[in-house]
Simulated assay, not measured.
Amino acid sequence: MLQNLVHYFLHFIAIAGIAYLYDKNNWKKYWLILLATMLVDTDHLLAEPIFQIHRCSINFHPLHSYLAIGIYVLGALFIQHKILKLICIGLCFHMFADGIDCLWNNFG
Rank of each mutant, 00 (worst) to 15 (best):
A68E: 14
W31M: 07
H61Q: 01
I33Q: 04
Y72P: 09
L63A: 12
L21W: 14
K82N: 07
N25W: 10
L39N: 02
G99T: 09
P62C: 03
W31D: 00
Q3L: 07
D41T: 11
G90A: 06
H94D: 00
Q52G: 05
L5V: 14
I79Q: 05
L77P: 11
N4V: 02
A19T: 04
A14F: 14
L2Y: 06
C56H: 02
L2G: 02
F60R: 01
A36S: 15
L46H: 05
C102V: 05
I13S: 06
I33W: 11
G70I: 10
I53Q: 11
S57D: 11
C88I: 02
F60D: 00
L39G: 04
Y8L: 08
Q80N: 14
N4Q: 08
C56W: 02
F93G: 05
D43N: 06
N25P: 03
N26Y: 14
E48I: 12
T37P: 00
I50E: 05
I50P: 08
A47E: 14
G75W: 08
F51R: 04
D41C: 13
S57A: 13
H94A: 02
H64N: 10
D43I: 05
N59Q: 11
C56I: 04
H61K: 03
A47F: 09
F93L: 03
A68T: 12
A14D: 04
T42D: 11
F51Q: 05
L2S: 09
E48Y: 15
L21G: 15
N26D: 15
L84S: 15
F60A: 06
W31T: 06
A19V: 05
F107D: 09
L46F: 14
S57I: 06
K29Y: 15
A97Q: 00
Y20P: 03
G75A: 05
A76L: 15
W104E: 04
D98Q: 00
L32G: 06
I18S: 00
M38A: 10
G17I: 09
L2Q: 02
Q80T: 15
Q80D: 12
T37Y: 01
H54R: 13
A76K: 15
W31K: 01
L10F: 04
I79T: 13
Q52S: 13
K28F: 08
G99V: 03
D43C: 02
G108V: 07
C56G: 03
I100T: 01
I79M: 12
Y30G: 03
D43A: 07
T42M: 11
K24N: 09
Y20T: 07
A68V: 09
L35G: 03
D98C: 03
Y20I: 04
I50C: 02
F60L: 04
K28P: 00
V73N: 03
T37E: 03
F96A: 13
W27T: 09
L10W: 01
L63S: 11
Q52M: 13
F93Y: 15
I50A: 06
Y22E: 08
F96S: 07
F107K: 02
N106H: 07
W27D: 10
M38Q: 10
L34R: 07
F93D: 11
A36W: 10
N4G: 11
I33L: 13
L10P: 00
I100F: 04
G75M: 13
H7W: 06
I79R: 08
L103F: 15
I18P: 00
C92P: 00
H64L: 08
L21Q: 12
P49C: 14
I71E: 14
K24Y: 12
R55T: 12
F93T: 13
A14T: 07
F96C: 09
I89T: 02
C56Y: 05
M1I: 10
